[in-house]
């Protein structure tokens, strides 16, 4: 598109009340900060590019900025997996601080992605993923054995495998019926997926622990970024910070004040393993960390883990 118009795409629909406002905040901030140099034309709900097409679409120049969930791209860019690893830290505040634009983890990700021609402007780290089940609660790793759990990405899938279950891939629109018909026994997800698909009406138990997390990030191509007017670049960076600060704050607020009470009110029992119980999970998922380190390379992996621990 000519003029200052840029194409922005995401697969997220406006019904994601926790994440979508962050995207709107990004777009508003970018437009305001650029002093009229930047007008963002948003195609949401996958209307231009579906979840699987966002990254190739960005790289082919179909979109200039995309909002993408890390689970879709962390197989391609393993460095993103650091923020997704189960039990990488058990303090959400720490995970959240680690990825602040300008902090070591954020810079490490962008250094790594620069080699692939991609840049993250900013992102929202989601709250932890829990294990949600219908028939019986998961209190120990052994309880996962033989369960078919829906997953959305590679690290989630490996987490399920490490716990002795079978990961099942399916679109989030199909999950409700699959749970109802016992095609799957549960799912691994953050609370946003549960509420936006009304799954609290069918799952009975949630095991609260750090079984993973995603980040929802704004990406652009690095060469495209370099070609922009300095004012536009500043506006994009500022918008990325807005996404991180205000978008994440909004998401956390929705999760704690709206979604969690809603899930509890629906009668979902939250299981919170303690002490030795949690330690057993931590031990069981060790292979997930090992696999990820192997994919990313030991040095970068160590750097990433350290920057998260120190955050």
């Amino acid at each position: 598109k000519g003029g200052g118009k840029r194409t922005v795409a995401t697969y997220l629909p406006s019904s994601y009340g926790d994440l979508y406002p962050g995207i709107e905040m990004f777009n508003k901030a970018a437009a305001e900060r650029s002093g009229g140099r930047l007008a963002l034309d948003l195609y949401d709900s996958g209307s231009l590019l579906g979840a699987e097409q966002l990254l190739p679409g960005l790289l082919s120049g179909v979109a200039d900025v995309i909002f993408q969930t890390s689970s879709y791209v962390s197989s391609t860019y393993p460095v993103l997996g650091a923020m997704e690893l189960p039990f990488v830290t058990e303090d959400y505040g720490k995970l959240r601080r680690a990825i602040e634009p300008g902090q070591p983890q954020f810079d490490l990700v962008n250094e790594n992605l620069a080699r692939k021609g991609v840049r993250i402007l900013g992102g929202m780290p989601t709250t932890f993923e829990y294990l949600w089940t219908v028939d019986k609660p998961i209190r120990r790793p052994e309880d996962v054995r033989g369960l078919r759990l829906r997953v959305a990405g590679e690290i989630e899938g490996e987490t399920v495998k490490a716990l002795g279950g079978a990961p099942v891939t399916m679109g989030s629109a199909e999950v409700y019926q699959a749970l109802e018909k016992n095609t799957i026994d549960g799912l691994v997800s953050y609370i946003g997926t549960v509420v936006s698909r009304d799954l609290q009406k069918i799952v009975k138990y949630g095991t609260a622990g750090h079984f993973g997390a995603y980040t929802v990030d704004a990406y652009c191509r690095s060469d495209w970024y370099e070609q922009q007017h300095p004012a536009v670049r500043r506006a994009l960076d500022a918008a990325g910070k807005t996404l991180y600060h205000e978008g994440t704050a909004h998401m956390v607020k929705v999760h704690t004040e709206e979604y969690l009470p809603k899930v509890k009110a629906a009668g979902v029992e939250l299981v919170e393993p303690e002490g030795a119980g949690m330690e057993a999970f931590r031990k069981a998922i060790a292979p997930v960390h090992a696999d990820w380190k192997r994919r990313l390379g030991a040095r970068t992996a160590a750097q990433a883990l350290e920057s998260i621990r120190n955050a």
């Binding site: 699987e52 990254l55 190739p56 790289l59 689970s71 879709y72 791209v73 962390s74 197989s75 391609t76 692939k116 021609g117 991609v118 997953v151 959305a152 990405g153 590679e154 899938g157 490996e158 495998k161 990961p167 891939t169």
Partner: peptide, 11 residues
């Protein structure tokens, strides 16, 4: 060039 691959344990 970008090493792009699908998501999931089998991609």
């Amino acid at each position: 060039k970008g090493g792009l691959t699908g998501a999931g344990t089998f991609s």
